[in-house]
């Protein structure tokens, strides 16, 4: 049966054509195509991955931003509180220092006032004693003349002292 007996001529040509076809396509066509297909598949894979990452990052970005804002608020509040605390502390300190200074000044004033008062007292006493001596000397001098005159003299002297003061 002819159908089942391979013809030598056809085998020869088939082998030759297939070999030629294979070599030509292998050298010039398939590598380019396979590289293209594989490359594109990789490119698409990478693109999808990139898009997924981007979406994830975008979703996270919202959260992260919220987190940052909350953080910032918290820090702000903390700083305000700190500032408040420092303000009170500074005021407290200033007040303390001022009091101390005032105390010092007042003490010094007191001391000087006391001194002045003592000096004045001393002066006054000295003067009073000298006046008293004067008066006493004048009274003693006029005693002998007139009682009325003596009284009048004493009054006059007292008036003088009063006016002096």
């Amino acid at each position: 049966m002819e159908l089942f007996t391979p013809e030598l001529g056809l085998i020869f040509w088939m082998f030759l054509s297939f070999a030629v076809l294979f070599i030509v396509l292998w050298k010039f066509a398939w590598p380019v195509i396979i590289k293209g297909i594989d490359g594109r598949a990789d490119l698409i894979d990478k693109g999808v991955e990139y898009a997924q990452n981007a979406k994830e990052q975008l979703d996270h970005a919202r959260e992260e931003a919220d987190k940052y804002i909350a953080d910032a608020r918290r820090q702000q509040a903390e700083m305000l509180r700190e500032a408040d605390r420092m303000k009170t502390q500074i005021i407290e300190e200033a007040r303390g220092a001022a009091q101390k200074e005032a105390q010092k000044v007042m003490d010094a004033a007191k001391v000087s006032i006391e001194q002045a008062r003592k000096e004045a007292e001393q002066n006054f006493r000295n003067e009073v004693s000298s006046f008293a001596l004067d008066i006493a000397s004048k009274v003693v001098r006029n005693r002998l003349a007139d009682d009325k005159a003596q009284t009048k003299l004493v009054n006059t002297l007292l008036d003088e002292i009063e006016n002096k003061n």
Binding site: L3, F4, T5, P6, E7, L10, M14, F15, F18
Partner: peptide, 12 residues
């Protein structure tokens, strides 16, 4: 549908 052709392919 010719056995020579398919045979060459199979031998390859």
């Amino acid at each position: 549908g010719n056995i020579a052709v398919t045979m060459v392919l199979a031998v390859m």
